[in-house]
Write a protein that binds this DNA or RNA. Structure first.
Lengths: 69, 69
DNA sequence: ATATAATTGGGTAATTAGGGCG
DNA sequence: AATGTCCTAATTACCCAATTAT
C-alpha cells in the first residue's frame, strides 16, 4: 500500500505553532494574510506544508537582523 | 473502454487520511456526510477514488499557489 | 486455516475556526 | 500592524471491541 505520486507532508496548526513558538491563532493569521500557504480539510481545518514551514524556519535563522533604528 | 470502465485507482481510508493529515475515522465521517464519494467492498469497508481525492486536495489549497512538479 | 494489519461502529476529550477585545 | 487571550460552535483525535482485508 503505497501512495504513489508526490504526496506533500502536511502539518497541523498546533505543530506549526509549536515549531515557531507562537499561538496557533497566529499561524492562522499568517495563512489568512497569505504569508503561508494552507490546505483545508473537508471540515475546514487548515493543514500546512512541512517543506514550506521548514524553509521559512531556516530562512530566518541565518543572518542577523538588519532592520535597526 | 473495458468492462472495468477505467483504471480507477482506489485509495484506502488510511491513504486518504495520510494525504489530508487527518485520522482515518475523519475520512469516514466525510464519506457519511456526503462530502466524499465512497465505494464499498463486499465486506463493507470503504474505498475512495484517487482522482476525486486529488481534486479535493488541490481545490482546498489556498494562498501562495505553488505547482509541484 | 492462522496471523497481522486495517476498518468498522459508538462515545468522549482535544483542536480548530471565527469574531472581538486588550 | 502583530500577538495573545476569552468565548461558542464545529471539526477532529483517541478510546474500546468486533469484523474485514491481505
Amino acid at each position: 500500500m503505497s501512495i504513489h505520486g508526490e504526496s506533500e507532508v502536511l502539518l497541523t496548526p498546533a505543530e506549526v505553532a509549536s515549531l515557531f513558538r507562537v499561538d496557533p491563532k497566529t499561524v492562522t493569521r499568517w495563512a489568512k494574510a497569505g504569508k503561508l500557504s494552507s490546505i483545508r480539510t473537508l471540515g475546514g481545518h487548515r493543514r500546512y506544508k512541512e517543506s514550506e514551514v521548514r524553509a521559512l524556519l531556516g530562512a530566518a535563522a541565518e543572518s542577523p537582523e538588519e532592520s535597526d533604528a
